[in-house]
């Protein structure tokens, strides 16, 4: 199976499988989650590092992933240090094409399939239902493991939980009651990673102004 980046995984988790589109409810924070996933992946790949004041490039060697390399280049050439929250806000703003970009590459990888749909004779849309759903199930299984086995999570799973919590994607595995019970552990885990906290902060500001979802941390 192709290795999915965290940006790929959060798009898979934000997808409404039955219609092959991102859930309308997640759209306000979709770009924030995707860009957060990109920064997280670059951090795990040893290209970025951060502290409480700034996010910065530590290795500008291209990764071979065009989306990741574009972001890495922008951060590496910045002459002014900025915190992770600033980069997430800036890089996710005015990027309406970003979700489609990830959906397209997931379709090219054979994880989603393209379905062109036409309505009212002349309007057409493209949907991306999953081929097998295996990737989503695998991601949800990892999140379930992190939440319920009470052990120290691996960095990648910690970061994925941060994205899932910020977008409300955890509703796929947790009822409202279970979400309330798990909230303290989710918050504790999300805190562990600086970029996870940054995604949570930026998404929280958006939800504060655009209406609530069941968001934690």
């Amino acid at each position: 199976m192709r290795h999915l980046t965290l940006a790929d995984e959060i798009v898979v988790l934000m997808l409404d499988d039955s219609v092959g589109e991102l859930k309308p409810a997640v759209m306000p924070v979709a770009n924030v989650a995707i860009m957060g996933g990109v920064l997280m992946e670059l951090s795990l790949m040893g290209r970025l590092d951060s502290d409480l004041q700034a996010l910065f490039a530590v290795d500008t060697t291209p990764t071979g992933d065009s989306l990741l390399d574009d972001v890495l280049s922008q951060i590496a050439t910045s002459t002014v240090p900025h915190p992770s929250t600033w980069w997430i806000e800036t890089l996710s703003r005015n990027r309406a094409e970003l979700p489609e970009q990830i959906l397209e590459r997931l379709a090219t990888a054979g994880i989603l399939r393209r379905e062109d749909r036409r309505f009212l004779w002349f309007f057409s849309t493209r949907a991306y239902p999953p081929v097998s759903g295996q990737e989503e199930q695998e991601a949800l299984a990892r999140l379930t493991e992190v939440l319920f086995n009470n052990q120290t999570p691996a960095p990648r799973d910690t970061l994925l939980l941060g994205l899932a919590a910020a977008t409300g994607a955890l509703e796929k595995i947790l009822s409202d009651h279970a979400m309330a019970q798990a909230a303290p552990r989710i918050a504790d885990i999300v805190r562990l990673e600086e970029i996870g906290r940054a995604v949570s902060t930026v998404a929280g500001l958006i939800w504060d102004t655009q209406g609530p979802a069941t968001i934690i941390a």
Binding site: S43, G46, D49, S50, D51, V58, T152, A154, P155, T158, L192, E193, E194, I195
Partner: peptide, 10 residues
Amino acid sequence: SSAGLRAILV
């Protein structure tokens, strides 16, 4: 840094 904390986490 974050990478340093991650090493401790691992």
